[in-house]
């Protein structure tokens, strides 16, 4: 589709240039993905299951290496330096922190221990203490349960812990992978509200991967839509929310709803061709 010109404001802090990702040396998952994330903004990356959203995040954070994946073409640039295929611990130190799908907190540790883990790359004790206080401000529920084992938290609290743990690293950029997964609609709203507040108050740059397009589109500054390992559409929040295709396939309720029957026959035709 269009050139990834981004939101056309400041120079992007993160640029993914035509990245191709191969798993196990044979499986091509991303076929030339380009996107840009300007400083201080929330950029949403939307798409169906298996479109390559999580893979894109892992290509940025370096976690691809832990799954036998590799960026075989193109580059990922952060603050003007190429970081593709660098080890994840280096990328964390550079300031990119990925909150992985499914929360992935350390269940047999307490809430406070999980938060301290988030600050693994830091050594400034005073700053760590202050940031833990800040996390508790954002997520008062975590303070209430700070001494308890993280495994016994509810799903929403675990997601809050995962985000709080990320803040403890004092990252320059947050990669959020499906923060709404497995949460009740009410909790999704709460979590997204806090994410938005963190973005505004800390000026923290975010790249948000979501299946819940409704919420994600509403809070982002700019969005990309992925299908089959490619970016198929991108645009500002307004442009995407008013786009008929997006309405139709992601938001539901386009102008003229095509009947379910048509949709099915369309799919059937495609399958048999």
């Amino acid at each position: 589709m269009s050139q990834p010109a981004g939101a056309a404001t400041a120079a992007p802090v993160l640029a993914v240039n035509n990245v191709e990702v191969v798993y196990d040396d044979v499986i091509l998952v991303l076929r030339g993905v380009s996107l840009e994330v300007p400083k201080g903004q929330i950029v949403a990356l939307l798409g169906a299951n298996g479109a390559g959203k999580s893979t894109t995040l892992k290509a940025i954070s370096g976690l691809l290496r832990t799954e036998d994946g590799e960026v075989t073409r193109g580059s990922v640039e952060f603050e003007g330096e190429t970081i593709s295929n660098r080890p994840p611990e280096e990328i964390v130190r550079r300031g990119i922190f990925q909150v992985m799908e499914g929360r992935r907190i350390v269940e047999d540790m307490t809430v406070v221990e999980n938060l301290r883990l988030g600050a693994f790359t830091r050594r400034d004790k005073e700053g760590i203490r202050a940031d833990m206080e800040m996390v508790f401000e954002y997520f008062p529920r975590l303070r209430e349960r700070s001494g308890g084992l993280a495994g016994y938290l509810s799903g929403g609290e675990q997601q809050m812990l995962a985000i709080g743990r990320a803040l403890m690293a004092r990252p320059k950029m947050l990669l959020l992978d499906e923060p709404s997964m497995g949460l009740s609609p009410l909790l999704v709203k709460e979590v997204f509200a806090i994410i938005g507040r963190i973005n505004r108050e800390q000026g923290l740059t975010m790249l948000l991967v979501e299946q819940n397009a409704n919420f994600a589109l509403r809070m982002c500054d700019y969005g990309y839509i992925m299908e089959n390992g490619k970016i198929v559409l991108d645009g500002s929040r307004e442009a995407l929310m008013n786009n008929e295709d997006v309405k139709e396939s992601y938001l539901g309720g386009g102008e003229e709803r095509r009947s379910f029957k048509n949709l099915k026959s369309y799919k059937r035709r495609k399958r048999w061709l």
Binding site: L63, T66, P88, R104, I105, V106, M109, G118
Partner: peptide
Amino acid sequence: SRMGLAMRATAFDQQVAQSLGIS
């Protein structure tokens, strides 16, 4: 200790540990 916590995190889930910047 910082390293001790890192070791426990690694024992729990290596990928998570790496995502936290632990080598």
